[in-house]
Design a protein around this nucleic acid. Structure first.
Lengths: 131, 131
DNA sequence: TATAAACCTTCCAGTCACTGGAAGCAAAAG
DNA sequence: CTTTTGCTTCCAGTGACTGGAAGGTTTATA
């Protein structure tokens, strides 16, 4: 299977697939003409990559997922642990973004937003030390 | 004021301040010995940068904020609009992370997480086209 | 059969917002 | 006077791609 077909099969851009090969996440065969040749197994790996990236796993986490998926003797506990770790990270991001949201909302409420130059948002941004 | 002092005053790393100068966000004076010399006004700009970055504004948005803060004839409406745009982006991020959280949670619930190799998470990741 | 188009290859550079490190002056402290 | 700290520039790397140039291959069409 050519790279273009693998791309449509997985939803990944061609460039991204080449990049994944470059960093050793997949190793497709090569034809006589130099074209990459993707096996079904390879496409499955790409599908895992696409889906896991979509779920917010880093490429290093994806690498671990791939090696777990290749390991017939794996314990599903290990996969679960990886997913839990990821879930925790997602929750932390949500928490800090929610704090941000609240602060922005407060700032916006304080700014009357008219033609005049005095602005509570700018006042706040310049006021205190950032942290 | 030396760069180190400016750093402690604003909470920004020295490296980051140099970077901000490099991309033209601030333009501190120079002493005879080549050291940067930060004025109070410059430190205020750095404070705005630190705080706005902390609130998730991109450096390009920060650039607009800085030019608004320098413009005596600004309308607070414009600052407010920028902040609202940012708030919208934050909300979108929260929404997509929440969807992620739900999907991860579902996946994790389905995996029994023991010594056996069969794993609902891996099954799901390899199963369908990513999107 | 000629040619155009679509597809493949590699390599280089850019993105964003820094961050780390090396090599070399300048200033302050002991 | 020496050590330490602080400052300077420059180069390279991060993560995860993305765009583009220059060129070879295959396929479709006139």
């Amino acid at each position: 299977m050519n790279i273009g077909t693998a791309a449509t099969q997985t939803g990944l851009p061609v460039k991204t697939i080449r990049y994944y090969e470059e960093i050793g996440l997949v190793t497709p065969d090569r034809r006589a003409n130099g074209y990459r040749d993707f096996s079904e197994a390879c496409v499955e790996q790409l599908r895992l990559l696409a889906q896991a990236r979509h779920l917010g796993f880093s490429l290093e986490e994806c690498r671990r997922l791939l090696s777990l998926s290749a390991d017939e003797g794996r314990a599903s506990r290990d996969v679960r642990a990886l997913a839990l770790q990821n879930l925790e990270a997602v929750r932390e991001k949500i928490a800090s973004l929610s704090a941000l949201e609240a602060q922005l909302q407060r700032l916006i409420a304080q700014c009357h937003g008219d033609d005049a130059p005095d602005c509570a948002i700018l006042d706040d941004l310049m006021g205190q030390r950032g942290n």
